[in-house]
Simulated assay, not measured.
Amino acid sequence: MISTETVSNYLERLASGAPTPGGGAAVALHAAQGAALVSMVAEFTSGPRYADVQEQAQRIAENAKEQMRSALFAAEEDERVFRALSTAYGLRKDTEEQKAERRDAIQHATIEAATPLVSTVNVASAVIELASELLLIGNRSVSSDVAAAAEAARAALGTALVTLEMNIAAIKDETQRAQLTRATTQASQMISQAEEISSAVRSAVSA
């Protein structure tokens, strides 16, 4: 499992010809790293100098850690659902009945495969919101890490956006398509917010 293996072991699996882990798991780990960086900056926002905002910073840190755990769960779920999708594609298609069963299985598995991506979009969005809040009160000596958190979340959203659009194209159910379209809209909006955070940090550094 991703949450318990070493980084090097995960990367070796990612680099192999095995179907999992893949892009969806990598997306979730981008979000997890962003959450971890937010927590780190919040933890550094402590001591007498930050007494007025320390309680707020601790709340941000706790929230970020929860988002990190949610992202790790999404990464593991992505492996599980993608294996199910691979199994669906491997079903027999010798007869018309088998072909119909295979099509239905693929549709169901494709919808299921999008669930971890939607979760990752929600996590990455939360990370960006927390980074925005932290940028106003956080320890200035590690403000670049706020930008790093936003960029990690932005990477997660950008890749999730592409993958979700592929899923939407493959799904016939209009209700499911609409739900995933809402997630892509959210991803696009939050990407812009992440860019604003990075820009604000860079401007502050160069001022």
Rank of each mutant, 00 (worst) to 15 (best):
G47M: 03
I106T: 06
A148P: 03
K99F: 07
E5I: 15
V201T: 03
E12D: 14
A187H: 06
A61H: 06
A155N: 11
L161N: 12
A155H: 11
Q186T: 11
R80G: 06
E112F: 00
A148F: 08
L164A: 00
D52G: 03
V53N: 08
R83H: 12
L164F: 04
A88N: 02
R69E: 15
Y10V: 12
S119N: 14
I197G: 03
I191Y: 02
L180Q: 00
E76D: 12
K99M: 10
A126P: 07
V162Y: 04
L14C: 05
V123I: 12
S144M: 10
Q189H: 07
L135K: 10
E133Y: 02
Q107S: 13
E97N: 10
A88F: 07
T184W: 01
R177A: 05
L11R: 08
T115K: 13
A204T: 08
A88Q: 02
P116I: 09
D145F: 06
A109N: 01
E97F: 06
G138I: 05
V121Q: 02
Q193M: 07
K65I: 15
V53Y: 05
V7R: 13
V118F: 01
I111W: 01
A64D: 07
T20D: 09
Q179H: 09
V53Q: 09
T4H: 12
I171A: 07
L14E: 05
T159N: 03
M68I: 09
A148D: 07
V53D: 11
A207H: 12
G22K: 01
H108F: 12
D104V: 13
A64I: 10
T184V: 08
T184A: 01
L130I: 03
T115W: 04
A114T: 02
A25M: 03
A160I: 05
A207Y: 05
E66M: 13
Y50G: 03
N63T: 14
R103T: 08
A169N: 05
M40L: 13
V146C: 10
Q179W: 01
S86T: 14
A105N: 00
Q67A: 13
S141M: 14
A126K: 11
L14V: 05
A183K: 05
L11Q: 11
K65Y: 14
T163V: 14
T159W: 04
N122A: 15
A114M: 00
Y10D: 00
S141T: 15
T185S: 10
R69I: 14
A183G: 11
I106A: 07
S141V: 13
G47C: 03
H108E: 15
E101F: 12
Q33T: 10
A169D: 12
A100Y: 08
R140E: 13
S3K: 02
S143K: 15
A25R: 01
S132T: 12
L91C: 01
Y10G: 02
Q54A: 09
A153L: 11
E174L: 04
T110Y: 04
T159I: 12
L136R: 15
L130K: 00
A31Q: 02
L136K: 15
E66K: 14
R49W: 09
L136C: 11
